[in-house]
Design a protein around this nucleic acid. Structure first.
Lengths: 192, 192, 192, 192
DNA sequence: TATGAATGAGCCTTCATTCAT
DNA sequence: CATGAATGAAGGCTCATTCAT
């Protein structure tokens, strides 16, 4: 009795996930350039060729990882788009974001490391630029609701502060006072 | 009639500079990994081998570029360490920094792009970590003079904001409202 | 239908052997330094990269070749370590050695050519020094059984004579009276 | 007052000698292939280009070194060609040779190391083959005077023994019982 | 003659990708 | 689908040699 199409599809998705997880870990630690297909296949316990059954190329694998991360980001944004008190929504969003940084450490680290390589990995980068733009729109709206004077610029600014803090966190590791920085940001932006 | 030692030394310095300039441009735009020695030599109009008369290795070239940039950073820091009104010193430093971002665009872009590559290019990265630490110390001191409550955390925070803004600027280019962001930061931190 | 592990293993061993055979031939004739990976790959009819599926590096390839040769040497030594009349054992060993020189011409030639390169190829050379030491011990024992006065020195001496003869043989080729030299050595050492 | 041609010639010879001495030392220790023109120039304290005023190529330098060594060998041979008791002449030659091995260590070591590289350094190798042939002729003559049965083969044999002993000496260094081997050889060949 | 900058062919090695089984 | 052998372009680097000064 042959397996149903659905079962196949589930297995396929499982295999893809395993490869993506392993790849992400390596990309984050060693960098995309310094990670070879061999490394990924080894870590995932499959042969090199197998990887090409699931992704058409190394960059395709990267894109898949990014696509998955975009959903994570999207969820965080959703918080800011809900109804209710804008201050509360901002606070919730910030807390969710800082939590995500720690729970999806590898993804965010990779995200930042690729943000600087303009001329390469086009698709992945387009995605990132879009996300950033999206963030600005959503947060600017929030600030408007709060009655801030320059909501768009403030949105740019808080985005910069967040990405910068994460950048430094990834650079120096646990020595970075991530939680205190989070609290400081929250305090600053929740002053009414 | 052989050339004098001094003549050689001058020529050498000129050649080094030319190679460093060309390399910096490529490193900044394409990334260190994606720039080949061939690319650099081509751009500089010399043979591949020539590069190795001036730098022991690709990484040595990178370090030389960084060493040069470190001086630039040092000068900006100096402003914060002078005597006088701390508010004024902070303002001057911020303005100098934003000017430098535009006038030394390539260097700062490279600086940020390498900040994210944890496990590679040790010497260059050590330098960066040191600089960041230095920055925190100097700016925290400034904030203390201003009577801020958590000077060290504030120093971390403004550092994050700045690096984040530059990161976004390099990512999206001229669409980024760099000057407005600068003015906003200055305004925020100069409120007495 | 994928190949079985065993099938792969057999193919692998075959490919390794072919590469080693081709490399040995070139190393022996042109010297290790003067043989490029390209040369070997060409001669073996594979792409350059293929070689690196079978050997980690050029030196690793050399070591593999040496390991194989060491077995040959070991077998010859075994003759000297058996029971029975020491004169007969010495004669058998000498004859086996001279036969080996002709049947494993390339290996012995490489062996001698590397013996002279003191500061390089550490692993291969350690092996050789060990073998030489081993030879002295075994042959000295034989001479002791024969009642010679200075068995150890005699062992050094016969070792020198043999290596020297082979050296000259490889240098001048078929003009060298290898067989007559063999007979002369046998005659000299079998006088009771 | 310009220097005379002779003075120039003497200076030139001095410079050549210095370069040859330094090159020989490096060739002997690191091998011909592993020694670069740069290394030699550095060690000799001159610029790379200078070397090419004295030798037309790296191989030309090698040949010059060999030419000089050939004279040394020639002198030793001369002993065997004098008048008088052949036993005494042989003994003197052997002693002179062993002395030379120690006093011209580097040259002999290089000599042996190049003996194995058939297809390269043609001129140098032709010289060596000639010398070896010459040695056989001279020593065979000596053995004939002594009334040996197979003088030519004996000449080959003693040549092999000597080169083999030197080979081992260079391989293992001071652990090799060079003097005892010398005495043993002398004793063996002077038995009347 | 002396210098060292410049060349460019060639070296060893890596790696994303393809493909027969 | 899974395997790993094979490819070949490209990478960083070395070095004997040439040449303008």
């Amino acid at each position: 009795m042959p397996r149903s199409k659905k079962q196949f599809s589930i297995m396929r998705e499982k295999s893809r996930k395993r490869l993506m997880d392993n790849a992400l870990e390596l990309f984050a630690v060693d960098g995309y350039e310094n990670t070879s297909i061999s490394d990924i296949a080894n870590k995932a316990g499959v042969a090199k060729g197998t990887l090409y059954h699931y992704f058409k190329s190394k960059e395709d694998l990267l894109q898949a990882i990014f696509g998955r991360g975009a959903e994570e980001i999207e969820q965080i944004m959703t918080i800011a788009r809900q109804d209710g008190d804008p201050y509360e929504r901002l606070e919730n969003m910030l807390i969710a974001l800082f939590n995500s940084i720690e729970s999806h450490y590898d993804f965010w680290r990779l995200y930042l490391s690729l943000m600087t390589q303009i001329n390469s990995y086009d698709t992945a980068r387009k995605l990132m630029t879009e996300l950033m733009h999206h963030h600005v729109v959503v947060v600017a709206h929030l600030f408007k609701e709060m009655g801030k004077e320059h909501p768009e610029e403030e949105a740019f600014l808080i985005g910069a502060t967040l990405d910068g803090a994460f950048l430094h966190y990834f650079q120096v590791g646990d020595q970075y006072p991530l939680h205190r920085i989070r609290d400081l940001i929250v305090a600053k932006y929740l002053e009414r």
